[in-house]
C-alpha cells in the first residue's frame, strides 16, 4: 500500500446521473402528488355541499374537456401522470435508501438525533405505509368498490359516489374511519418533511429566512391537506354528513 489518494478520480461526471438528480426527481414527483391531493381534498370537501353537488362534481371530472377529451379522459391522463410519478418517487427512494444502507454496514451502538424531526426520520416507513394505504384506498373506492357498510347494496360509484362515501364512514364502521384517519396522520408526517425537503432540494432555501419559510410551508401543507381530508370521515361518522 503506497499512496492513499489519486486512485479513482471520476472523469466526466454528469449531473443527471447524480444522487441529487434522484432527489430532484423525488421532489418533482412529490410536488405532483401534493397538487393532486390538494385538488382531491377540494373535491372531498364538496361533500359538505350535499349529495347533488358532490355527485355533479364527480361527473364533471369525467366529462371535463369534452368533446376534445373522451368521457373520463381527464381521469386517465391523471392516472398515467400519477402512476409515472409514483414509479419515479418510489424508484428514487429505493435507490437512495439502498445507498444509505450500504454506507453504514456497521451501526452505531449509541446514536442520538439532535436536530431531525420525527417526520423526517419516518419518511421511508411512512412512504411504505402510504403506499399500502393507496392500494387499499383504490380497492375500496375505485377498483373493487368494497363497501362493507350496513347501507345495504353497494351503490355503484359511477351512479352515486356520495352514497359510497357516506356508507363507508357510518358510525358502526368506526374502524374504517380509524384507518383513514391514521393514513391521514401518515400523510401529514410525509407532507411535513416532504414539502420542506422538496423546496430545499430544488434549491430555494439559501438563507436562514427562506429555510424557516420552507419549514412553515411544510406545516401548512401537512395541516391543510391532512386536516381537510380528515373532515369528511369525521363529520360523517358523527352524522353531520349523511
Amino acid at each position: 500500500m503506497r499512496a492513499v489518494a489519486t486512485t479513482t478520480l471520476i472523469k466526466g461526471a454528469r449531473s443527471t446521473r447524480s444522487t441529487i438528480a434522484l432527489k430532484l426527481l423525488m421532489a418533482a414527483s412529490g410536488i405532483v402528488f401534493v397538487l393532486f391531493v390538494l385538488v382531491h381534498m377540494y373535491g372531498n370537501l364538496k361533500a359538505f355541499s350535499g349529495e347533488l353537488a358532490y355527485n355533479e362534481y364527480a361527473e364533471h371530472l369525467r366529462t371535463f374537456g369534452e368533446p376534445y377529451l373522451p368521457y373520463g379522459g381527464l381521469l386517465w391522463i391523471l392516472r398515467v401522470v400519477l402512476l409515472g410519478s409514483l414509479v419515479a418517487h418510489v424508484g428514487a427512494a429505493v435507490a437512495l435508501a439502498r445507498r444509505a444502507h450500504a454506507q453504514r454496514p456497521v451501526k452505531y451502538a449509541v446514536k442520538k438525533n439532535k436536530a431531525s424531526s420525527l417526520s423526517s426520520r419516518t419518511m421511508r416507513w411512512g412512504g411504505v405505509a402510504l403506499f399500502v394505504f393507496i392500494v387499499w384506498h383504490l380497492l375500496h373506492f375505485t377498483i373493487a368498490k368494497i363497501n362493507v357498510g350496513k347501507g345495504g347494496q353497494a351503490p355503484d360509484i359511477t351512479e352515486n359516489p356520495y352514497r359510497l362515501l357516506v356508507n363507508s364512514f357510518l358510525p358502526e364502521q368506526w374502524w374504517m374511519v380509524a384507518i383513514y384517519l391514521l393514513a391521514m396522520l401518515a400523510l401529514a408526517f410525509h407532507l411535513h418533511h416532504g414539502t420542506f425537503s422538496a423546496i430545499q432540494t430544488l434549491g430555494f432555501t439559501n438563507t436562514a429566512e427562506s429555510r424557516a419559510r420552507a419549514r412553515v410551508a411544510g406545516w401548512v401543507v401537512a395541516i391543510v391537506i391532512a386536516g381537510g381530508f380528515s373532515l369528511v370521515p369525521l363529520f360523517t361518522v358523527f352524522g353531520v354528513i349523511s
Partner: peptide, 12 residues
C-alpha cells in the same frame, strides 16, 4: 495538481 497527475500525495 494531484488530479492533474503532477503531484502524488503520501498521507500518514
Amino acid at each position: 495538481q494531484v488530479a492533474a497527475g503532477t503531484v502524488e500525495q503520501f498521507t500518514r
